[in-house]
Design a protein around this nucleic acid. Structure first.
Lengths: 222, 222
DNA sequence: ACCTGAACACCGTTCAAGT
DNA sequence: ACCTGAACACCGTTCAAGT
């Protein structure tokens, strides 16, 4: 009715709200138009089409991802703090980060964090290609973890089979383990533990890993 | 034309082929019907609706995921071999594993691998809740990595910004690192390195990690 | 028991027409 | 420059009607 000229900004805001709350599937051009009180086709004039509307939303998300301030005394502790900060940022926008990811912009979104990680990895004494791999390993760990968490939360009724299938041998040998695996996952703890373990492994003396003979051929047909 | 009575099996096979090649979005009931030479509505009689058709496909995938045979001399090497075998299996069905994942069946799909991992983690001397966390850490690492790889391959034109933004300080301090981060990711190597580092960290003497003072409070507002 | 076409309520997008 | 409705080609799904 009393529209004061539709703006691109207005469209992005409304679309963003829809996606944040109900996911990208809930964003239909017709519903969006209804919400804005305009004709569907007006939206097309401002944003081209649905795909580029989503692109613009993603672009905005990438820019929003704030800078990272590492905390802690040791490089390992500071890397962990970066990882946790990232996880918190990503968890706040589950749908949008999935879209960033699908559009292959994850790396760009991670640039500020990457700079911070490079600094810490350097401080830990790593250099060159090995330092690069360490940075990427942490990055993958964080993204991977968040992606998994997102889908767990969406479908929390995990297999009931898991409980059943732990009677055989392990349950009696190690009931505490069987109980832990049957129960729900403590995501916070698992995340922290995993990152800590990964960083410890990455920062460790490389010679220590050669204690495992023939590790490189563990799975020849891979 | 000369249809010899449509079967549920036939429908699943055709639908599975469509999804494997072009993803779930390419599976429309009408296209599927055309491919099978029947009316759209016949399919509904056999499988209910599109959603339960996809469910059946996912169910099949979960069952298909073969058993795991760990290889290698040390527990660490054998865990790595399990991780690599899993990665290979998952990479062969990228669309389907994404669907398994979205339906929250990842844990069930992973049961055989989990059993194998439990065995190796036990062999490495871990017990109880700590063993459970180690098993899950590896599991998350593998799934996370494969999910990321899948989306990288779909959108390989990653940020061009990454190259630009490495001039400032690091590039001159450590040009090898800048070069490595600007270039493409060697997924095989990154995967192997990450798992190896994670396992090394998980299997390490827990006391060693306390060398990092105040690690648990690295990021108090997380 | 199995298959069918017609119909419904949705989509995204284009286009000629308005102001 | 901006907005509009009509129309097109798609969806998934239901339903009454066939054999």
């Amino acid at each position: 009715m009393a529209r004061t000229s539709l703006t691109r900004e207005e469209i992005l805001a409304a679309a963003g709200a829809l996606v944040r709350q109900h996911g990208p599937a809930a964003l239909t051009m017709r519903k969006l138009a209804a919400e804005l009180g305009t004709a569907v086709t007006s939206i097309y004039w401002h944003v081209g089409n649905r795909e580029s509307l989503l692109d613009a939303l993603v672009e905005r998300t990438v820019e929003e991802l704030g800078e990272i301030r590492p905390r802690g005394r040791t490089p390992a502790a500071r890397v962990l703090s970066v990882a946790r900060a990232l996880r918190r940022e990503l968890r706040a926008r589950p749908h949008l980060i999935a879209m960033v990811h699908e559009r292959g912009l994850t790396d760009r979104m991670f640039l500020p964090a990457q700079q911070a990680l490079v600094h810490e990895v350097h401080a830990a004494g790593l250099r060159g290609a090995r330092a690069a791999r360490a940075v990427r390993a942490v990055q993958f760990q964080v993204v991977g973890h968040v992606l998994i968490e997102r889908n767990r939360e969406r479908a929390p009724v995990q297999s009931p089979a898991e409980e059943d299938l732990w009677h055989p041998s392990t349950a009696e040998q190690d009931p505490a383990l069987a109980r832990a695996l049957a129960g729900a996952v403590d995501q916070d703890r698992l995340f922290t533990d995993s990152v800590r373990a990964l960083v410890a492994g990455l920062f460790a003396d490389p010679g220590a890993q050669e204690a495992d003979p023939g590790g490189g051929e563990a799975d020849p047909d891979a």
